Amino acid sequence: MITFKNPWEEKGMYYSDWFDTTDSGALHRMGQVSDNDITIEGPFDSKGQSLKFVSRKNSYSYVVTINKMPSKYDLKSIKWAVSYDDNQPEEAYYLFKGGIVEGNKVRVDIQIAKGENSFRVYAYFGALPSLRASVNVFYKKVVIFFISGAGDKEPYLGEGPTNLIEDKVRSEFNKLSLPVDYSSYYLSYKDAYKDEILSKIIPKIPNKEGSLVNIIGHSLGGWNGAHLSQILTDA
Protein backbone atom coordinates (compact mmCIF):
# COMPACT_ATOMS: atom_id res chain seq x y z
CA MET A 1 0.00 0.00 0.00
CA ILE A 2 1.47 3.34 -1.08
CA THR A 3 0.28 6.66 0.27
CA PHE A 4 1.80 9.98 -0.79
CA LYS A 5 1.00 13.61 -1.47
CA ASN A 6 1.22 14.63 -5.10
CA PRO A 7 1.83 18.40 -5.46
CA TRP A 8 3.56 17.88 -8.83
CA GLU A 9 0.72 16.06 -10.59
CA GLU A 10 -0.17 19.08 -12.72
CA LYS A 11 3.40 19.00 -14.06
CA GLY A 12 3.04 15.40 -15.18
CA MET A 13 5.39 14.03 -12.54
CA TYR A 14 5.23 12.63 -9.05
CA TYR A 15 7.15 13.78 -6.03
CA SER A 16 7.26 10.97 -3.48
CA ASP A 17 8.89 12.66 -0.52
CA TRP A 18 5.89 11.68 1.57
CA PHE A 19 5.22 7.97 1.63
CA ASP A 20 4.55 4.98 3.81
CA THR A 21 5.85 1.93 1.99
CA THR A 22 8.68 -0.51 1.61
CA ASP A 23 8.07 -0.93 -2.12
CA SER A 24 11.08 1.07 -3.32
CA GLY A 25 10.70 -0.21 -6.89
CA ALA A 26 7.15 1.17 -7.08
CA LEU A 27 8.32 4.52 -5.73
CA HIS A 28 11.06 4.70 -8.35
CA ARG A 29 8.53 4.05 -11.10
CA MET A 30 6.32 6.80 -9.70
CA GLY A 31 9.27 9.19 -9.47
CA GLN A 32 9.60 8.91 -13.25
CA VAL A 33 13.31 9.70 -13.08
CA SER A 34 15.41 7.65 -15.50
CA ASP A 35 19.01 7.52 -16.65
CA ASN A 36 18.10 10.03 -19.37
CA ASP A 37 17.43 12.60 -16.65
CA ILE A 38 20.87 12.57 -15.05
CA THR A 39 24.27 14.01 -15.87
CA ILE A 40 27.56 13.12 -14.22
CA GLU A 41 30.59 15.36 -13.74
CA GLY A 42 34.04 14.80 -12.33
CA PRO A 43 36.55 14.03 -11.19
CA PHE A 44 37.05 17.01 -8.86
CA ASP A 45 39.90 17.49 -6.41
CA SER A 46 39.50 18.57 -2.78
CA LYS A 47 39.32 22.23 -3.89
CA GLY A 48 36.55 21.56 -6.39
CA GLN A 49 38.79 21.88 -9.45
CA SER A 50 37.78 19.72 -12.42
CA LEU A 51 40.47 17.25 -13.48
CA LYS A 52 41.05 15.04 -16.48
CA PHE A 53 44.01 13.08 -15.14
CA VAL A 54 44.18 11.48 -11.70
CA SER A 55 46.48 9.49 -9.44
CA ARG A 56 45.73 5.93 -8.33
CA LYS A 57 46.69 6.92 -4.80
CA ASN A 58 44.00 9.59 -4.23
CA SER A 59 40.22 9.76 -4.09
CA TYR A 60 38.23 12.25 -6.16
CA SER A 61 34.68 13.57 -6.15
CA TYR A 62 32.02 12.79 -8.76
CA VAL A 63 28.69 14.61 -8.90
CA VAL A 64 25.38 13.51 -10.42
CA THR A 65 22.74 16.12 -11.23
CA ILE A 66 19.14 14.93 -11.57
CA ASN A 67 17.51 17.23 -14.11
CA LYS A 68 13.92 16.42 -13.11
CA MET A 69 12.45 17.12 -9.68
CA PRO A 70 13.87 14.15 -7.76
CA SER A 71 12.38 12.40 -4.75
CA LYS A 72 14.36 11.49 -1.67
CA TYR A 73 14.23 7.93 -2.89
CA ASP A 74 15.69 8.91 -6.27
CA LEU A 75 18.53 10.78 -4.62
CA LYS A 76 19.40 7.87 -2.35
CA SER A 77 18.99 5.11 -4.94
CA ILE A 78 21.48 6.33 -7.54
CA LYS A 79 23.95 3.53 -8.29
CA TRP A 80 27.64 3.79 -9.13
CA ALA A 81 29.83 1.48 -11.20
CA VAL A 82 33.25 1.45 -12.85
CA SER A 83 34.84 -0.19 -15.88
CA TYR A 84 38.52 -0.26 -16.76
CA ASP A 85 40.36 0.86 -19.89
CA ASP A 86 38.27 0.10 -23.01
CA ASN A 87 35.74 -2.21 -21.34
CA GLN A 88 32.09 -1.55 -22.15
CA PRO A 89 29.25 -0.75 -19.67
CA GLU A 90 28.11 -4.38 -19.56
CA GLU A 91 31.56 -5.23 -18.18
CA ALA A 92 31.36 -2.60 -15.43
CA TYR A 93 31.62 -3.46 -11.73
CA TYR A 94 28.94 -2.26 -9.34
CA LEU A 95 30.43 -0.12 -6.54
CA PHE A 96 27.67 1.10 -4.21
CA LYS A 97 24.44 3.09 -4.00
CA GLY A 98 23.68 6.60 -2.74
CA GLY A 99 25.99 9.44 -1.77
CA ILE A 100 25.94 12.87 -0.17
CA VAL A 101 22.75 14.71 -1.18
CA GLU A 102 23.15 18.39 -2.07
CA GLY A 103 19.85 19.74 -3.46
CA ASN A 104 19.20 17.86 -6.70
CA LYS A 105 22.78 16.59 -6.77
CA VAL A 106 24.47 13.53 -5.31
CA ARG A 107 28.20 13.59 -4.61
CA VAL A 108 30.53 10.68 -3.87
CA ASP A 109 34.26 10.33 -3.25
CA ILE A 110 35.85 7.40 -5.07
CA GLN A 111 39.40 6.10 -5.27
CA ILE A 112 40.10 3.88 -8.28
CA ALA A 113 43.42 2.08 -8.64
CA LYS A 114 42.75 -0.64 -11.22
CA GLY A 115 43.08 -0.45 -15.00
CA GLU A 116 46.19 0.16 -17.04
CA ASN A 117 45.58 3.61 -18.50
CA SER A 118 42.03 4.72 -17.72
CA PHE A 119 38.68 3.95 -16.14
CA ARG A 120 35.07 5.06 -16.58
CA VAL A 121 32.68 5.97 -13.75
CA TYR A 122 28.94 5.42 -14.28
CA ALA A 123 25.85 6.69 -12.46
CA TYR A 124 22.52 5.00 -13.15
CA PHE A 125 19.08 3.94 -11.90
CA GLY A 126 18.36 1.01 -14.19
CA ALA A 127 19.60 -2.55 -14.25
CA LEU A 128 22.78 -1.71 -16.19
CA PRO A 129 24.93 1.42 -16.59
CA SER A 130 25.25 3.21 -19.92
CA LEU A 131 27.83 5.40 -21.63
CA ARG A 132 25.41 8.32 -21.63
CA ALA A 133 25.74 8.89 -17.88
CA SER A 134 29.46 8.29 -17.46
CA VAL A 135 32.82 10.04 -17.41
CA ASN A 136 36.08 8.69 -18.78
CA VAL A 137 39.13 9.37 -16.61
CA PHE A 138 42.82 8.88 -17.38
CA TYR A 139 45.65 8.14 -15.00
CA LYS A 140 48.58 10.51 -14.71
CA LYS A 141 51.56 8.71 -16.19
CA VAL A 142 55.31 9.07 -15.96
CA VAL A 143 57.23 7.44 -18.80
CA ILE A 144 61.00 7.06 -18.53
CA PHE A 145 63.18 6.18 -21.51
CA PHE A 146 66.66 4.89 -20.72
CA ILE A 147 68.54 5.24 -24.02
CA SER A 148 71.80 3.33 -24.20
CA GLY A 149 74.95 4.24 -26.06
CA ALA A 150 77.00 2.35 -28.60
CA GLY A 151 77.82 -1.24 -27.63
CA ASP A 152 75.30 -1.26 -24.78
CA LYS A 153 72.04 -2.87 -25.89
CA GLU A 154 73.54 -4.21 -29.12
CA PRO A 155 77.06 -4.71 -30.49
CA TYR A 156 78.98 -1.78 -31.96
CA LEU A 157 82.13 -2.28 -34.03
CA GLY A 158 82.61 -5.73 -32.54
CA GLU A 159 82.16 -4.63 -28.92
CA GLY A 160 79.28 -5.47 -26.58
CA PRO A 161 76.53 -5.66 -25.77
CA THR A 162 77.39 -4.62 -22.22
CA ASN A 163 73.81 -3.92 -21.02
CA LEU A 164 75.29 -1.25 -18.76
CA ILE A 165 72.23 1.02 -18.72
CA GLU A 166 69.86 -1.89 -18.08
CA ASP A 167 71.89 -3.62 -15.34
CA LYS A 168 73.36 -0.63 -13.51
CA VAL A 169 70.81 2.14 -14.04
CA ARG A 170 67.30 1.08 -15.04
CA SER A 171 67.15 -2.06 -12.88
CA GLU A 172 68.30 -0.09 -9.81
CA PHE A 173 65.80 2.67 -10.54
CA ASN A 174 62.95 0.16 -10.80
CA LYS A 175 63.69 -1.07 -7.27
CA LEU A 176 62.66 2.31 -5.87
CA SER A 177 59.19 2.75 -4.40
CA LEU A 178 57.93 5.85 -6.18
CA PRO A 179 54.61 7.64 -5.49
CA VAL A 180 53.78 7.83 -9.20
CA ASP A 181 52.32 5.58 -11.87
CA TYR A 182 55.32 5.07 -14.13
CA SER A 183 56.72 2.82 -16.84
CA SER A 184 60.36 2.58 -17.84
CA TYR A 185 61.90 1.32 -21.07
CA TYR A 186 65.41 0.29 -22.06
CA LEU A 187 66.16 1.44 -25.61
CA SER A 188 69.00 1.42 -28.08
CA TYR A 189 70.25 4.74 -29.39
CA LYS A 190 68.99 3.53 -32.78
CA ASP A 191 65.42 3.47 -31.42
CA ALA A 192 65.61 7.25 -31.09
CA TYR A 193 66.35 7.81 -34.76
CA LYS A 194 63.68 9.96 -36.38
CA ASP A 195 62.35 7.17 -38.61
CA GLU A 196 62.08 4.78 -35.63
CA ILE A 197 60.37 7.07 -33.12
CA LEU A 198 56.87 6.65 -34.54
CA SER A 199 56.90 2.86 -34.25
CA LYS A 200 59.15 2.23 -31.23
CA ILE A 201 58.62 5.19 -28.87
CA ILE A 202 55.31 6.98 -29.49
CA PRO A 203 53.20 3.84 -28.75
CA LYS A 204 54.80 3.64 -25.30
CA ILE A 205 53.37 7.05 -24.29
CA PRO A 206 49.74 6.53 -23.14
CA ASN A 207 48.61 10.09 -23.84
CA LYS A 208 50.51 13.29 -24.48
CA GLU A 209 48.50 15.60 -22.20
CA GLY A 210 48.60 13.35 -19.14
CA SER A 211 52.11 11.93 -19.43
CA LEU A 212 55.36 13.31 -18.08
CA VAL A 213 58.19 11.97 -20.25
CA ASN A 214 61.72 11.68 -18.84
CA ILE A 215 64.66 10.82 -21.09
CA ILE A 216 67.93 9.50 -19.66
CA GLY A 217 70.61 8.89 -22.26
CA HIS A 218 74.22 7.73 -22.22
CA SER A 219 76.80 8.53 -24.89
CA LEU A 220 75.09 8.31 -28.30
CA GLY A 221 71.86 7.72 -26.39
CA GLY A 222 72.28 11.16 -24.83
CA TRP A 223 72.67 12.86 -28.19
CA ASN A 224 69.71 11.05 -29.69
CA GLY A 225 67.72 11.59 -26.50
CA ALA A 226 68.04 15.36 -26.89
CA HIS A 227 66.81 15.04 -30.47
CA LEU A 228 63.91 12.85 -29.27
CA SER A 229 62.95 15.45 -26.67
CA GLN A 230 62.58 18.11 -29.34
CA ILE A 231 60.51 15.85 -31.59
CA LEU A 232 58.11 14.97 -28.75
CA THR A 233 57.79 18.63 -27.79
CA ASP A 234 56.87 19.61 -31.34
CA ALA A 235 54.49 16.68 -31.87
Rank of each mutant, 00 (worst) to 15 (best):
L164Y: 15
I165K: 02
E166F: 11
E166S: 10
D167V: 12
D167L: 12
K168T: 13
K168D: 15
V169Y: 04
R170E: 10
S171G: 06
S171P: 04
S171Y: 01
E172K: 09
E172A: 09
F173D: 00
F173S: 00
F173H: 00
N174W: 06
N174G: 06
K175W: 00
K175G: 00
L176K: 05
L176V: 06
S177F: 06
P179C: 08
P179A: 10
P179S: 10
P179K: 05
Y182V: 03
Y182W: 10
Y182T: 06
S184T: 12
Y186F: 15
L187R: 02
L187D: 02
S188C: 10
Y189E: 07
Y189V: 03
K190T: 08
K190P: 01
D191E: 13
D191R: 01
A192Q: 05
Y193F: 14
Y193P: 02
K194H: 13
K194W: 10
I197E: 01
I197N: 01
L198H: 09
I201W: 00
I201V: 11
I202A: 05
P203T: 13
P203R: 07
K204C: 05
K204F: 03
I205V: 12
I205L: 08
K208L: 11
G210S: 09
G210K: 05
L212A: 11
L212Q: 11
V213Y: 03
N214P: 02
N214A: 11
N214M: 13
I215W: 01
I215A: 02
